[in-house]
Simulated assay, not measured.
Amino acid sequence: MGKLSTDEKIRILADLVGIESVNDNELEVAEYLKSLLAQHDIQSTIIKVTDSRANLVAEIGSGTPVLAVSGHMDVVSPGDASKWQTPPFKLTEDDEGRLHGRGSADMKSGLAAFVISMIELHEQGLPKNGTIRLLATVGEEIEGYGAKAFYKEGYMNDVDALVIAEPSQDKIIYAHKGSMDIRVASNGKSVHSSMPDLGYNAINPLVDFINRINQAYNSIKDSNELLGDSVVNATIINGGSQVNSIPDYAEAEFNVRTIPEANNESYQKLFEQIAKNVKVDAPDSDLQIDTYMSRPPVFTTGDNRLVDAAQALSKQYLGKEVPKKASPGVTDASDLVVDKGEDFPFIMFGPGETSQAHVIDEYVKKEDYLNFIDLFEALFVEYLDHQK
């Protein structure tokens, strides 16, 4: 009873990396975790989203306070596997003790560390006070609907604090920007390019829209003391199919990084208003706004026992006191803590360097992965004991 061996801990991470959950197939990950937890007498529930996608929830302890720990089961595509030094879906250790594989850092090592921490605590009869609730999510890398589902179904209602183990061992994140993905579609009428007056070029109003968005963004002066400025970028543009045909369709996609002062709702209104403005000057234009991903910013003060404990324990288990910071990135916290307020204890802190997310030859250092398991166990118990 008590501790799993190092080999067992590495095997669990290897098993998870070996499941190709590229923006899908989280059900297989959930089933693996459910089986693993059951071997240690921890009950869990799989909540199916589609035939191949499912959230998983598990708890140890009982009563209040409730500490939620959350990790996503999906990974991004490895891209061209031939460019990897090792097979992307086979955990491979190099001579420097780095464990390579897609998701090794982002974020199957964090998810595995959570699960192993819960197993080891449970076998020691811990926690004595409160509940640790695992929320393993689907779809974090694209739309975040796993976290949205957990929130909608009430799994965050009684939660007193949240830890997300994205790769961030170099900093403890307690606030981050929001994110929006917006597609602007322009419809026209196709004719031969020698007779443009008989059709309508879908590219022209779209170019006008992009220019107006850029001008509007440059005039926004709102900023946040922690998160800085909001960010707007047109990142994809497509239109036309043949050089001598007037295009009847064109589209542009935008990524927007939001802050509380220039939030998702305000940018939604801005995009819709600019489409109306283009219509005034070009009555035949037909612009459609499709916001297919919207995750609000997370703004907490970082002044709480959870942050303090994480900093103190990082010095003990990682050999240095990790600074607390805000981040331009986005996590499932966007959809999990939407109504918790600025004083809610939230951190993003987990094994792996931030720079390893989504890269070729992604890795987590074995030592860091193992140390975070011990760190999490100490953090969970200390936080719950001091909150009772």
Results as ranks from 00 to 15, higher is better:
Ala165Gln: 08
Asp74Ser: 05
Gln316Tyr: 07
Gln311Met: 15
Arg98His: 04
Tyr217Ile: 12
Tyr217Phe: 14
Ser314Ile: 12
Ala202Cys: 06
Glu382Leu: 08
Ala149Trp: 01
Ile289Tyr: 01
Glu253Phe: 09
Met73Glu: 04
Leu318Trp: 07
Phe89Asn: 01
Asp208His: 12
Gly319Tyr: 09
Val163Gly: 02
Asp158Ala: 07
Asn224Asp: 15
Pro78Cys: 07
Val159Asn: 04
Tyr363Val: 08
Ser314Leu: 11
Lys315His: 15
Met1Ala: 14
Tyr217His: 15
Lys269Asp: 15
Ala202Gly: 07
Val75Leu: 01
Val17Ala: 02
Lys324Asn: 13
Glu265Phe: 11
Ile259Glu: 11
Glu8His: 12
Val338Arg: 14
Pro65Asn: 02
Pro78Val: 08
Ile119Thr: 04
Gly146Ser: 05
Val381Asn: 07
Ile46Gly: 02
Asp343Ile: 01
Met73Cys: 06
Pro127Ile: 00
Gln273Met: 12
Ala234Phe: 05
His40Ser: 01
Pro323Met: 13
His358Glu: 09
Ser186Gly: 06
Ala14Ile: 06
Asp335Phe: 12
Leu67Ser: 01
Arg183Glu: 14
Gly199Asp: 08
Ile210Cys: 09
Val75Trp: 01
Gln268Val: 12
Ile347Ser: 06
Val207His: 02
Ser179Ile: 14
Ala234Asp: 05
Ser5His: 09
Arg295Pro: 02
Gln288Ala: 11
Phe150Asp: 00
Phe299Ser: 11
Val278His: 01
Glu321Lys: 14
Thr137Glu: 03
Thr331Glu: 05
Arg212Leu: 13
Asn129Val: 13
Ala105Gly: 11
Val307Met: 12
Glu96Leu: 05
Gly139Leu: 02
Asp335Met: 12
Lys315Met: 14
Val49Pro: 00
Gly240Asn: 02
Asn214Tyr: 10
Leu13His: 02
Leu27Val: 03
Val330Ser: 13
Gly79Pro: 00
Ser77Leu: 02
Val307Asp: 08
Ala275Arg: 00
Glu26Met: 00
Glu353Asp: 15
Asp343Cys: 01
Tyr267Lys: 09
Val17Ile: 10
Gly63Tyr: 01
Val49Asp: 04
Lys276Gln: 13
Asp332Val: 06
Ser35Met: 04
Glu96Met: 03
Ile373Ser: 03
Gly18His: 05
Ile203Asp: 07
Ser62Glu: 06
Ile360Cys: 10
Ala378Pro: 07
Tyr383Met: 04
Lys325Pro: 07
Ala175Glu: 08
Val57Asp: 00
